[in-house]
Design a protein around this nucleic acid. Structure first.
Length: 491
RNA sequence: CGGGGUGUAGCGCAGUCCGGUUAGCGCACCUGGUUUGGGACCAGGGGGUCGCAGGUUCGAAUCCUGCCACCCCGACCA
């Protein structure tokens, strides 16, 4: 086990915190519930952003930016929406400070009270729909396909680095459509984009499905989600896409004229993923030695470490490293050469394992002699000597192999941790002994869902898209059910 | 908001119960040398408003009062 990292078996929470802090991803800040995302952590976020942004553009979306502040009155327009967010809003009431008359520091200037308070956005539906009202008159103005990269604030009672922070970074797509069918199609398209990204780039398998009524987004008609399973057997919601119906169009009076000349309310969607994805990345793949990053999201994919005794040796090694390094870079591989002479190789090995670099290449005197290099894989912690000849192709292929292998491992884990339960006792036993997803029949009522949650802390994560139709009886009430749904304890 | 814990060097801690030289230790850092295929070693060196504000005392990291911050567990949530 790496120095200073708590084992997963010992304390999973502490292990997670140790990885985040020791791998240099983020730190607690001086502000309660808010984190400082450090350069290495932010580099991962930038990779996530870049890829998702490309995928959004490829599906016809454009980026825009809306204000951080939302007038309080906007929140009272959509009843469910305000109820969902009211309890966790930061509110701006004043716009000026002054010197404390008692001479100590500064105080809020009570004369500078705002006429109407401003809410720091917890999500932007309201300000955006207020804006769309001015943009939409005719069916010719539709669809509007916009995404925003932004920060939002939700005053959560308890926070955890990346998984739930008071302020977090995310993207939120907000689209407007002429028809219900088109809006639903958009909602589904985007949840599929998320699933594609999370599986093929993050290497985290997900279940795509719909949320039960109780877990639905405040103000949505239908919420689609992707659910991932973490190594401790708890589920994590990795992304959501909401079909908002005409709720926001009605709340903000957004109508358009159809070809036929009638006036109709616009159909809406919204969808988002956040820095929480980094939490998912960590909890899905990492081990007791530190972070494990999929090659496609690793800020640096290959690190070179020289092993030498003399200056002459180092020079020869450096020459060889530079040769391989530049060839790799030409193939689009990101690399780094760590020739710091104050640290021993062993220390560097441990450090890059902690930081999750997918491949480490060590070159020493033996390699110069034999024309080899030592290639170490982070995901499997295996090492082998490889001929320098053909090394570039070898590494390029290996990166793909690692990407697939990481996904496969997580997928196998999820298969092992997905269990069917047919009675409530069985359900509870699996939950306590094994964790993971439990596929069980449910009578479809919010009451039963709530009771199960109260008794077991497990919630319905989703009703999978590809669910089989299967007659059965609800594990709680014994009432008839047409399909199984996926339960789990979750983050 | 309830329960628990912690605040002493960049990090991790000891010292606090029972007040008393110049506040220690490990890691990290700086200088020099020897090392380098899995977390090096020797020698020398720098770094402190002891969370904050009051109080008691000849004397406070230590005792008293008030405050603050953060972490962990729970309820709430992406």
């Amino acid at each position: 086990m790496a120095k200073g990292i708590t084992g997963r078996d010992k304390d999973y929470s502490q292990w997670y915190n140790d990885i985040v802090v020791k791998a240099g991803l983020a730190d607690h800040s001086a502000v309660r519930g808010c984190m400082v995302i450090k350069p290495y952590g932010y580099a991962i976020w930038e990779k996530i952003q870049r890829q998702l942004d490309d995928m959004f553009k490829a599906t016809g979306h454009q980026n825009a930016y809306f204000p951080l502040f939302i007038p309080k009155s906007f929140f009272s327009k959509e009843a469910d929406h305000v109820e969902g967010f009211a309890k966790e809003c930061a509110i701006v009431t004043h716009y000026r400070l002054k010197n404390d008359p008692d001479g100590k520091g500064v105080v809020v200037d009570e004369d500078a009270k705002l006429e109407e308070e401003l809410i720091v956005r917890p999500t932007s539906e309201t300000i955006i729909w207020n804006t769309y009202k001015g943009w939409i008159q005719s069916y010719r103005d539709l669809p509007i396909l916009i995404n925003q990269w932004a920060n939002v604030v939700r005053w959560e009672m308890r926070t955890r680095l990346f998984l739930r922070t008071t302020e977090f970074l995310w993207q939120e797509g907000h689209t407007a459509h002429a028809t219900k069918a088109e809006a639903i199609e958009e909602t589904i398209q985007m949840i599929n984009v998320y699933a594609d990204f999370v599986q093929n780039w993050m290497g985290v398998p997900v279940i795509i499905g719909t949320k039960s009524e109780g877990e639905r987004f405040a103000g949505a008609i239908e919420t689609y989600c992707i659910e991932a399973l973490m190594q401790d057997g708890k589920a994590l919601q990795a992304g959501t896409s909401h079909f908002l119906g005409q709720n926001f169009a009605k709340a903000f009076d957004v109508k358009f004229q159809t070809k036929e000349g009638t006036l109709e309310h616009v159909w809406a969607t919204s969808w988002g993923v956040s820095t929480r994805l980094i939490g998912a990345l960590i909890m899905a793949h990492s081990d007791d030695n530190g972070l494990v990053l999929p090659p496609k999201l690793a800020p640096t994919q290959v690190v070179f470490i020289p092993i030498y005794k003399s200056k002459e040796e180092l020079e020869q090694i450096t020459e060889k490293v530079n040769e391989i390094k530049s060839q790799l870079e030409k193939r689009g591989v990101t690399t780094q050469y760590d020739d710091r002479d104050t640290l021993k190789p062993g220390f560097k090995f441990a450090e890059y394992e902690l930081k999750g670099y997918p491949i480490r290449i060590a070159i020493g005197p033996k390699d110069l002699e034999k024309g080899t290099v030592e290639v170490a894989r982070r995901d499997t912690l295996t090492k082998e000597f490889v001929k320098q000849e053909g090394i570039v192709d070898y590494i390029v292929n290996l990166l793909d192999t690692i990407q697939e292998s990481i996904f496969k491992k997580a997928l196998d884990f999820r298969h092992d941790k997905t269990t069917k339960a047919d009675t409530f006792d069985e359900f509870k036993r699996i939950l306590d002994e094994k964790g993971g997803f439990i596929s069980a029949h449910w009578d479809g009522t919010a009451e039963s869902e709530e009771k199960i949650k109260e008794e077991t802390k497990a919630t319905i994560r989703c009703i999978p898209f590809d669910n089989e139709i299967e007659e059965g009886t609800c594990i709680l009430t014994g009432k008839p059910s047409k399909q199984r749904v996926l339960f789990a304890r979750s983050y």
